[in-house]
């Protein structure tokens, strides 16, 4: 593998995302301000039910992690479909770099706006909703956050390969997956509440990541609502990351080959 080539390709694809975010600042309104409003609604649901303050913090952390999930789904996984529709995909495929570096470039490029949204959510949580984060182990928290992101983006790459094969179906699948995955991952509530279903939910990397991060920032709730220990969750996430990245590579290659065979790689408006 030519490392320099792939690093340059990654930088090349990340560039339009960063420049686009600067040149079209309307994303601040659409991708930061408005989504925060929906999220705030969940905080008020807890307030209306007189729930413990920590639950509001659960929503804030859920909002942070779903921001990355949204970046994975909309900014990366479904993006290959969009690239096909705008005639860029064939140039990507005919170029020598790894497709994973293109996807990673999209993800990294989108990180700027994603991070702005995350910081805004945290600021809103702390200042407006007065959520009190009690960080017990900052190192472990950062480690879990990082590994969760790797696993998430690995999963996004697997999806990207599936979306490459499908046409509009992929776009629709992206849409319908949002809420069910929010539910299964415990976006706005502790996932342990799902009982045995929570085991199934751990297939989605950010379920475990979110649970671990909640335990590490709201320790008073860890015993009652924590799924398993954060250390164990870190190990599972590490294994998941490796498997997902490997799967991403294999599935991207396989789907590209299948697309070449069926002739769907350059077929627009499917």
């Amino acid at each position: 593998m030519n490392v320099m080539l792939n690093l340059r390709a990654l930088k090349g694809r990340a560039y339009p995302r960063m420049i686009g975010a600067v040149r079209e600042p309307s994303w601040m309104f659409w991708e930061t301000f408005l989504p925060i409003l929906s999220m705030a609604a969940y905080v008020y649901v807890y307030r209306s039910l007189d729930a413990p303050k920590e639950f509001e913090g659960f929503v804030i952390l859920g909002g942070v992690m779903t921001t990355y999930w949204m970046n994975v789904l909309w900014g990366m996984a479904s993006q290959l479909y969009w690239e096909k529709e705008t005639a860029n995909l064939q140039l990507y495929l005919a170029a020598p770099m790894s497709k994973m570096s293109i996807l990673a470039g999209m993800a990294l490029g989108g990180m700027f706006s994603t991070s702005v949204r995350c910081i805004s959510i945290i600021v809103m949580g702390v200042i407006i909703f007065k959520v009190d984060f009690v960080v017990t182990n900052a190192g472990l928290l950062l480690g879990i956050f990082g590994v969760t992101l790797v696993a998430l983006y690995g999963m996004g790459m697997v999806f990207a390969s599936l979306f490459l094969m499908w046409g509009r179906e992929a776009w629709h699948l992206n849409m319908i997956m949002e809420e069910p995955i929010y539910f299964l991952s415990g976006y706005s509530f502790p996932v342990k509440a799902l009982g045995s279903l929570s085991l199934f939910a751990t297939v989605i990397p950010f379920t475990l990541g979110l649970d671990a991060m909640r335990q590490l920032t709201f320790p008073s709730m860890a015993t009652q609502w924590g799924l398993v220990s954060p250390h164990l969750e870190l190990v599972i996430l590490l294994v998941m990351s490796i498997i997902l990245l490997y799967l991403a590579r294999v599935s991207l290659d396989r789907m590209e080959r299948m697309g070449r065979s069926k002739g769907t790689l350059t077929m627009r408006w499917q």
Binding site: M4, L5, R13, P16, I19, E24, N88, A95, P96
Partner: peptide, 20 residues
């Protein structure tokens, strides 16, 4: 091909990176 928000030079530079 390319991205409408980028300039000509930026678009070309981006594609050059895919060839390292």
């Amino acid at each position: 091909s390319g991205y409408g928000l980028l300039t000509v030079r930026e678009n070309l530079w981006m594609f050059s990176q895919f060839y390292g």
